[in-house]
């Protein structure tokens, strides 16, 4: 067998890490999880770091960080690139299923002005339900095929639903249920965990470097980062949902993406939405 000297560095590192005690994750001490305190700390961090940014403006991502980009964006918002998807979404939303029922039958208030309450924690099922998951469930329960979570029809539908909630502040609830707290904590942990060969966490870009450039892009702050979803990204030449962004971001840092709407992603969306409570929904949005 040939020698592999460089691999011994790795096995040594592995052994070292095992010794440091990173075995099974510590049992979750529920009393230690304080989402309200987290949210306040999160908000204070960004408000303090960017005193010139108006509170509601955080939802505009890179445009709140860069004046030139903001000017171009304001121009385009008069004829926004998501306009076609928004119109298609409105049409789709009002069209009945084959069985005569509507999307409106699956949601509070007929699905109008409710986007800011998603994701929710379903206590019956013990898991986080995102808007996209709720929409596909609505379809399946009414005998229709589910849509891809990433773009096209799903993005059109959520564009319309987001539009009906424009201006309403994120209002995510965490019920007093240890499973909900665990989902929240899981999402928080995902957000801060480094992954991919490039060893980035979500925080590496969106907490440590908002306003800075990564290659040609200006980074958005994590505070309010989901408020503009779904978005028309020029990079995609089309619409994309939160799932599209999570999966493509993973690939960009050389991490194999998880399945759209997998547990980790839903918990991540739950965490990110909760800590942005109070910021207005601005979707559908346009991004470079």
């Amino acid at each position: 067998m040939r020698t592999r000297p460089t691999l011994s560095i790795l096995t040594a590192a592995l052994a070292l890490c095992a010794l440091i005690g990173a075995s099974s994750p510590a049992a979750l001490a529920i009393d230690a999880v304080d989402p309200a305190a987290d949210a306040k700390a999160f908000r204070d961090f960004f408000v303090k770091k960017f005193p010139q940014v108006k509170f509601e403006d955080f939802v505009n991502g890179p445009y709140s960080m860069n004046e030139d980009m903001r000017k171009q964006w304001k121009d385009k918002e008069q004829f926004p690139p998501y306009e076609f998807a928004l119109e298609a979404g409105k049409e789709m939303f009002s069209k009945p299923f084959k069985n005569g029922k509507h999307y409106a039958d699956c949601f509070e208030n007929g699905g109008i002005g409710v986007r800011q309450t998603y994701p929710t924690f379903d206590e019956k099922e013990g898991q986080v339900i995102t808007l996209e998951l709720a929409l596909n469930r609505c379809r399946e329960v009414n005998g229709e095929q589910p849509y891809s979570y990433v773009k096209d029809e799903m993005a059109q539908l959520t564009a319309y639903m987001a539009f009906t909630s424009r201006g309403k502040p994120f209002d995510i609830k965490i019920p007093n249920d240890p499973r909900a707290l665990e989902a929240y904590e899981n999402g928080k942990r995902y957000f801060y965990t480094r992954r991919g060969q490039l060893n980035f966490s979500c925080a590496s870009c969106h907490v440590q470097n908002p306003g800075e450039r990564i290659r040609a892009e200006v980074l958005a702050p994590a505070f309010g980062i989901l408020n503009a979803m779904p978005i028309y990204r020029s990079e995609w030449s089309g619409m994309g949902t939160t799932s599209r962004r999570f999966t493509t971001c993973n690939s960009q840092i050389r991490g194999v993406p998880l399945e759209p709407q997998s547990l980790e992603y839903r918990d991540l969306e739950y965490y990110l939405s909760y800590v942005s409570n109070g910021l207005p929904i601005s979707g559908p949005g346009a991004r470079p």
């Binding site: 691999l7 592995l14 700390a41 801060y192 480094r194 992954r195 925080a203």
Partner: peptide
């Protein structure tokens, strides 16, 4: 080697993620 490095990363990050937390 890459796979093992990703395992080291995942294992280490189970604790180290807290370093980044606000």
């Amino acid at each position: 080697a890459l796979a093992k490095a990703s395992i080291v990363q995942a294992t280490s990050e189970q604790q180290r993620w807290k370093d980044m937390e606000i």
